[in-house]
């Protein structure tokens, strides 16, 4: 389990190992995240992709300890975040931040923009008085707003502008890692592109490491260096995104990529339309959680959770038939 593919370029900032999160609900325990392991290289953008119930949001929250994980470890720069007591954790909070999906509920409506960003600065005692004001102005400028905006309230801004404010708040403490939870999903297409550009600029300029949680496969392909595909709380496939997109090995990844709408009516793809619904996380299938919708499922798939199989040093798949299916596909092409 510990031979998780490490990203190209060596230096690992965050290493998640066997992360599990179980919620106890009135209708029974829910395995939101189960045995998830991956590495995030310093300065890289790792996309976590999945549909509803995949546990992608919970995984992100667990790493930041906004939700207490049930098991596993998250080693950030040599320290296991999950073992840190609340007090010691506060110093690490400065080093990792979060950006939210909903630009409306992520800003306190009663606080001025300057106070929203200022709170981050104050909490870690980063600047006072005039220096603090200058820092706020600088942050606003950095995300494409003007210093005068500090005096306004969130409701005076558009969705895209609010998202910029949220980004400025995250950047205020100069973090190394940012968990971006669907940061552009709630925005209009034209605004989405503006914010994606901003995220990239900042990432390059500040050398940020990012965990980019999304259901939008087009955005992830464009933005992310590595990709982790989740389904019902488990990793189906992971690897460098160019490799995974060019050569998806898990039947789920294949289906997902083949059904993502592409804005080009002339593209004729072989579509794999999955049958049925995503099973309830309250009652996940035995063995491989994907088997109930998998077109290639066999009896053995129900027996045991498929182990991770490497297809290249940094690309791995959790499917017992992946090698067999790959040969099948090549045969079909040659025939």
């Amino acid at each position: 389990m510990n031979h998780s593919p490490s990203p190209q370029g060596g230096d690992v900032l965050l290493s998640v190992r066997n992360l599990s999160k179980r919620f106890h609900t009135a209708s029974g325990p829910v395995k939101a995240v189960e045995d998830v392991s991956f590495d995030v290289g310093r300065g890289r953008i790792v996309g976590i992709v999945g549909e509803s119930g995949s546990g992608k949001t919970t995984a992100g929250r667990c790493i930041l300890r906004l939700v207490e994980p049930s098991e596993g470890e998250a080693v950030f720069d040599g320290v296991d975040l999950f073992k840190l007591p609340e007090k010691a954790l506060r110093a690490y909070r400065r080093r990792m931040q979060i950006i939210f999906q909903d630009p409306y509920s992520s800003l306190n409506p009663r606080m001025r923009v300057g106070d929203i960003i200022g709170e981050a600065i104050d909490t870690h005692g980063l600047a006072k008085g005039a220096a603090r004001q200058a820092r706020i102005a600088d942050l606003l400028a950095r995300v494409g707003l003007s210093p005068e905006h500090a005096r306004r309230y969130p409701h005076e801004f558009s969705g895209g502008q609010r998202q910029r404010i949220g980004i400025a708040r995250a950047l205020a403490v100069e973090p190394e890692l940012i968990v971006a939870d669907e940061p552009v999903s709630a925005l209009d297409v034209s605004v989405q592109a503006q914010v994606l550009n901003l995220i990239q600029e900042l990432q390059k300029e500040l050398g940020l490491t990012m965990l980019f949680i999304s259901h939008d496969l087009t955005v992830v392909e464009y933005l992310c260096d590595d990709i982790v595909v989740l389904y019902l709380g488990r990793i189906m496939e992971q690897g460098p995104s160019r490799e995974v997109y060019a050569n998806p090995r898990h039947p789920y990844t294949k289906a997902l990529l083949s059904t993502a709408p592409i804005p080009d009516p002339t593209v004729r793809r072989e579509r794999v339309i999955l049958q049925g619904d995503i099973p309830s996380p309250l009652d996940p299938p035995s063995g491989c959680v994907f088997r109930t919708r998998c077109p290639f499922a066999i009896e053995a798939c129900a027996k045991a959770v498929p182990p991770r199989e490497s297809v290249s040093p940094s690309h791995s798949v959790a499917c017992i038939r992946q090698a067999e299916l790959a040969t099948l596909a090549t045969q079909k092409v040659t025939a």
Binding site: R61, L64, L66, L89, R90, R93, R94, M96, Q97, I98, F100, Q101, D102, S105, S106, L107, N108, M111, E119, A120, T123, H124, G166, R169, A170, V173
Partner: peptide, 20 residues
């Protein structure tokens, strides 16, 4: 709400989250 989560992620103490 996310803005409270954001405050927690920043390490803002609980009593301040409660009041502010």
């Amino acid at each position: 709400l996310p803005y409270v989560e954001a405050a927690r992620a920043l390490g803002v103490p609980t009593w301040r989250i409660m009041t502010r």
